[in-house]
């Protein structure tokens, strides 16, 4: 399978960087063709510009400057997001990737009178998120109701193939986690991608 991995963390010695390496190795071991996009390494510019906003709703005309990202997305059969959760959402660099690249005509098609969107990425049949949160799971789920998860899972699902398989792997409570806890999570990540 052609798997497009989108990764965002500025530090190569971080836990998220280690998770990213583990994902890549597990996918390659399992025989998948991996196309890795490291947003920080690419120096990706996340702020949607005035020109891009002006052309945002012009299908086809809204691709200037993002053609290669769109081509990589369209060539993929599976998608993996590897990034920490900051401020209950994705890091700005990753949010900007969605703002700028997942435009109408690529990720979705809008209907004229505001009905349900029509999916644009039906080529994606498998999807996984590997992330971490500083806060413990009970705070994230019970108080905050995991809004970052809902965007990355429910919000995305309707853009992909109708029978897309989805995985959300989150290491909660990273601020105070133990080595053992992190190792257990790594084992879970390895197992998921070995069987991806």
């Amino acid at each position: 399978m052609r798997v497009h991995v989108i990764y965002a963390h500025p530090r190569s010695d971080s836990f998220n960087s280690a998770l990213h390496d583990i994902v890549l190795a597990a996918l390659r071991n399992a025989g998948h063709e991996v196309d890795d996009l490291d947003l920080y390494a690419e120096n990706f510019q996340p702020a949607l510009t005035a020109d891009e906003r002006g052309a945002y709703h012009t299908v086809g005309g809204n691709l200037a400057g993002i053609e290669s990202y769109v081509a990589r997305l369209r060539a993929a059969q599976a998608l993996v997001i590897s990034a920490p959760t900051w401020w209950y959402g994705m890091p700005a660099i990753l949010k900007g990737y969605f703002d700028r690249v997942w435009v109408p005509g690529v990720a979705f098609h809008l209907q004229r009178h505001g009905g349900a969107i029509i999916p644009g990425l039906t080529n994606i049949r498998k999807y996984a998120v590997v992330t971490t949160t500083g806060s413990p799971w009970w705070f994230m789920r019970l108080y905050m109701r995991d809004p970052g998860k809902r965007v990355l899972m429910r919000g995305m699902r309707r853009l992909f193939a109708p029978d897309v398989a989805m995985h959300y792997l989150c290491h909660y409570g990273t601020d105070v986690s133990t080595l053992q806890h992190r190792q257990r999570f790594i084992a879970r990540v390895k197992a998921t991608f070995a069987a991806f």
Partner: peptide, 9 residues
Amino acid sequence: CFGLPAILK
């Protein structure tokens, strides 16, 4: 995209 613009995030 269901969130704050990247520049504000």
